[in-house]
Amino acid sequence: MNKEQIHKIVTENPVVLFMKGSKTFPQCGFSGRTAQVLKACNVDFVDVNVLAEADTVPELRDYADWPTIPVVYIRGELIGGCDITTEMYQAGELQAKLGDLMNPTRRALIEPLV
């Protein structure tokens, strides 16, 4: 995946997670945890497996100017990796940023991550 494709996917989808593996089968603990945080927000998100194509990692590193995987984008804005996403979730900031993107019928079911 090149920078143009990365730009297209983060601007055309409200929430995108670049990760190792997939949200159903993460291949790295940090990627898995980040997917879990987004799932806990009841938000639909697109997962991109950076291991699927050899050039995705270096292209993403350049595009995002961020050195590690996973990487979360919300409405085209770089949010950060696992630590930042988790911290924001625990502070309620992630939910505030997601706003209407969270499924309102299930919002009441959100429970804190352990």
Binding site: W66, P67, I79, G80, G81, D83, I84, E87
Partner: peptide
């Protein structure tokens, strides 16, 4: 912000 702090750390360390 947390993001800016992490960037400062990454910038200081360079190529991980």
């Amino acid at each position: 912000t947390t993001m800016q702090r992490h960037r400062l750390v990454y910038d200081s360390v360079g190529d991980l």
